[in-house]
Design a binder for these strands. Structure first.
Length: 426
RNA sequence: GGAGGGAUGGCCGAGUGGACGAAGGCGGUUGUCUUGAAAACAACUGUGGCGCAAGCCACCGGGGGUUCGAAUCCCUCUCCCUCCGCCA
């Protein structure tokens, strides 16, 4: 959510930002109109309430003094004010509801250095690392490798749960577990993160807090009877950990990391990305979430990205860092960089991390504040997050990049201690 | 799932429909005293909204209602506790 005061005072900048985002449906003009109407009504309502409060006190005093007649006369007048108030309050409630709803549908303002373009065609590769693997044989896609090695069972996954579900088996399941443990250990031991194990089902207010609702409810799974939503990423529960809180001076920055399953409806056109395990309804992801002081936001973003890149480098997986253009920015992000890893079998760059700075956009929605120093006024924190990293796409990259002519796959050296010393999956 | 009891400021805890934004205590900050500290004493000590300001308004778990007026009465939701049942 944006700061309505800022919106009032920077109408031009706001309009410009919405143009850059190509956010033609963002109801920012409506929000400003409603805000004006809201304040008008609020002034009237509060004046009436003040009058009524005064009158009610007076009635109490008159009764105590036994001036019953005067009290009753005043009571009659207060009844009138009450009726007037009731009408105005109803109108105010209505306007506030519409105002709030509009505010929740206005996307974040992009940082000044985000590439301006109407869609993803404007995304810019800002960094490339590593050599793409070369083979003197025809490299296979992971769905073939996985089946031949008997470590990915697509057919039975579909039998259980339908399209876009899969089963990892044997060394495949263990490889995933090794990756998760190694990711977590690096972030905990070397990058200063504290591990958390959050709920995978959350109340809708959490989804509003991180900005998944109201606009993206159609990609979420939810309980049919109760207000429980399956998390599409650990960002949701972990960011909302501190909702409605004022963090004590000295508690920032907070770094959390969590490994959780992620559930997404992925309502993409049937037939797109159906083969293999690239786009699925359930996957594991290690997510880093930061709560920081505003002036450190950009530095914290860079170090967050590095925390993810380092994993790819140590896995020896070639990747590129992509600056996301304004038109492709997610609703809540002020700036976002994706990390894409090369998969030699399907010859594709796979998104395995998405690192974003939200400034105070999520903090306003979830009401997460901190006190800069003892006795100071609370301020909104800045939140950031990024995958470090997403599975099973890393498995795809490992299988496809480290495959050998005989169909076996070399395990990246850093993972071997987590694989019981296994160096080759065959 | 069944039965009952709760939710009040940073914490503990009082609160009869009218002087309650809320007693009292603890904690915290500042001041007086002191060479310094402690003690004692005093003042201050929540969040947000509107407004240039004075100030006004809202908030006693959330929402709704009754009333001239609600922390207090009614309805409803959420959460917590105790006991029973079930369970990894």
């Amino acid at each position: 959510m944006l700061d309505i005061k800022w919106m009032r005072e920077n109408r031009e900048a706001l309009a410009e930002a919405m143009r850059k985002l190509n956010a033609t449906d963002a109801p920012w003009e409506k929000a400003l109109e409603l805000d004006e109407r809201r304040r008008e009504l609020l002034a009237k309502v509060e004046a009436l309430r003040a009058e009524r409060n005064k009158g009610s006190k007076e009635i109490g005093r008159l009764f105590r003094e036994g001036k019953k007649e005067e009290a009753n006369a005043l009571k009659a007048r207060m009844t009138e004010i009450g009726q007037e108030l009731e009408a105005l309050e109803a109108e105010l409630r209505q306007v506030e509801e519409e105002f709030y709803d509009a505010m929740m549908r206005i996307p974040n303002i992009p940082e000044p250095d985000v590439p301006v373009a109407p869609d993803e065609s404007g995304n810019v590769v800002v960094k490339e690392w590593g050599q793409l693997p070369r083979f003197d044989f025809q490299p296979k896609p992971h769905w073939d490798l996985g089946e031949e090695l008997d470590i990915i069972d697509l057919e039975r996954g579909v039998k259980l749960s339908g399209s876009r579900f899969y089963i990892l088996k044997g060394a495949g399941a263990r490889l995933q577990r090794a990756l998760i443990n190694w990711f977590l250990d690096v972030h905990i031991n070397e990058h200063g993160y504290t591990e958390v194990y959050p709920p995978f089902l959350v109340r809708s207010h959490c989804m509003w807090g991180t900005g998944n609702l109201p606009k993206f409810g159609d990609v979420l799974y939810r309980d049919a009877e109760e207000d429980y939503w399956l998390i599409p990423t650990a960002e949701v529960p972990v960011t909302n950990m501190y909702r409605e809180e004022i963090l004590e001076p000295g508690s920032l920055p907070i770094y959390h990391v969590a490994a959780t399953p992620c559930f997404r409806r992925e309502k993409v056109s049937a037939g797109k990305d159906v083969r293999g395990i690239k786009r699925v309804h359930q996957f594991e992801k290690v997510e880093m979430v930061k709560f920081v002081e505003p002036h450190t936001g950009r530095d914290e973003l860079e170090s967050l990205i590095r925390n993810a890149e380092e994993l790819l480098e140590r896995l020896e997986l070639p990747y590129r860092r992509v600056a996301i253009a304004t038109g492709d920015l997610s609703f809540v992000a002020a700036i976002k960089f994706d990390l894409e890893v090369w998969a030699a079998g399907c010859e594709e760059w796979l998104e395995v991390s998405s690192c974003s700075l939200f400034r105070d956009f999520q903090a306003r929605r979830a009401n997460i504040r901190y006190r800069p120093e003892e006795g100071a006024k609370p301020e909104y924190v800045y939140t950031l997050n990024g995958s470090g990293l997403a599975l099973p796409r890393i498995i795809i990259a490992i299988l496809e990049n480290f495959q050998q002519p005989d169909g076996s796959v070399v395990v990246p050296p850093v993972l071997r201690p987590y694989m019981g010393g296994v160096a080759v999956i065959r």
